[in-house]
């Protein structure tokens, strides 16, 4: 095998480490994206029996955004197995207890339930903030593009820019400024 072929072989089957910033991202939308990288669906060599999945590091999972009133509408079900052991936890209560759980469950649910799923989930690393261990961070070579734009708060825009921005509405005559 020539040197070029050897490098090609190595590059094809090596595990790539991707990073994904969850800030202002919908976990259920991003789960479908993360799933592709975890299972290796983005590779032309993909086959269910081929162990070609990558590692995805999710950061800022505390800052995920849910749509509309989903924080108080979504319920997560758990049953302890004992009679009367059923609990329904609202999404915001679950997120206050564990800020990584919602994105983990979203990715887990987006994949087909077979024996491979537990092993694929082992390659998903989630961190609530930007504090990622150094031995994880030094493997990362690729960043997954975010799906949604991160909105900018009005008080984070410089005041001159707010004042000089083109105006649409003008006050009527004799309007008392409040």
């Amino acid at each position: 095998m020539s040197a070029a072929k050897r490098v090609q072989q190595w590059a094809t089957f090596a595990r790539t480490w991707h990073i994904f910033d969850c800030k202002w991202q919908d976990p259920y939308e991003s789960a479908n994206l993360i799933k592709k990288y975890l299972m290796g669906l983005h590779k032309p060599i993909y086959h269910p029996m081929n162990d070609c999945g990558d590692v995805v590091v999710c950061v800022n999972s505390r800052d995920i955004a849910l749509r509309g009133d989903d924080w108080k509408q979504r319920a997560y079900f758990h049953h302890t197995g004992y009679p009367g052991g059923a609990t329904w936890t609202l999404a915001w209560e679950l997120h206050s207890k564990d800020p990584t759980m919602i994105i983990k469950k979203a990715v887990y649910r987006s994949m087909k339930g077979n024996l491979q799923r537990r092993h694929t989930m082992e390659r998903l690393l989630i961190y609530p903030g930007m504090n990622v261990p150094e031995d994880v961070m030094q493997n990362v070579t690729n960043q997954i593009r975010q799906i949604r734009y991160v909105p900018v708060r009005l008080d984070h825009i410089p005041e001159e820019e707010v004042k000089s921005f083109p105006k649409v509405m003008d006050y009527p005559e004799n309007y008392v400024l409040k």
């Binding site: 509309g68 915001w92 708060r153 008080d155």
Partner: peptide, 29 residues
């Protein structure tokens, strides 16, 4: 929480200090 500086005076001016489910990021369609 995108216009947190345009709120009544008793507001704490920080979206993360809001009560309960309101302290988490929300987007709309």
């Amino acid at each position: 929480g995108l216009m947190i500086n345009l709120t009544p005076g008793n507001c704490k001016k920080d979206p993360k200090k809001r009560f309960g489910y309101k302290k988490f990021n929300t987007y709309f369609d």
